[in-house]
Amino acid sequence: MFVQIKNLTFHYKNSQKPLFENLSLSFKQGEVSVILGESGSGKSTLLRLIAGLEVPSKGSIQIDQAVMNDNFRFVQPEKRGVGLVFQDYALFPHMTVEKNIKFGLTKMNRKQKQARMEELLAIVGMEDYASRYPYELSGGQQQRVALARAMAPNPSLIMFDEPFSNLDSKLQLQIRDELQEILKRTGITSIFVTHDEEDARAIGDRIILMNNGKIQDEGRPEMVLQKNKEKLSLAYV
């Protein structure tokens, strides 16, 4: 298993009740997994735990055989080699598209950086926008730049937090297809978090249904969605 989460327990400060209690979950290499759940179900927090932005109170997380945290160790987020695309993209407003993408490329020389940046802009189809600032881009363009930036350092795992929620529905479909195509092409392991059943169905190799910090079901999209139809439709009424 590429990502292995074991007996993970987490509480927010000021909260007695843990959000996760002994949660175990794993992700296969090259797989596109979707965590589907309502807002507040804990799905974004799970991404933050994997990325190292939150500290769990118990349990362990392994990525690609390496222990990210257990009872004795805690690897800082910058050392985990995990890409995360934020819900509102978090593009640095004081940097151009080019600078944003080059930001994570620390171990390269100038030429390599330029080449990698151009390569990624080509992948996301934004070659002409290198010198723009984020506020000069539309929502869909920002989304693509955020993806390019997260992919640039060549992470072993890339995660998306509600990537389509800020886009209008037409653009949403287009970007979703593009994204799926890019992920398939690069073969990168990825985890999506969404509350949208359609997104989950379209993009996922596997769906993990989450509710109140617990995993309700997991498996192939059609099966999970079919089996939990009633529950899901209730939840989204």
Binding site: A51, G52, L53, Q76, P77, E78, K79, R80, G81, V82, G83, L84, F86, A90, F92, F103, G104, T106, R149, A150, A152, P153
Partner: peptide, 8 residues
């Protein structure tokens, strides 16, 4: 957080 996940 974005910067840290990018390795800084």
């Amino acid at each position: 957080e974005a910067s840290r996940t990018l390795g800084m």
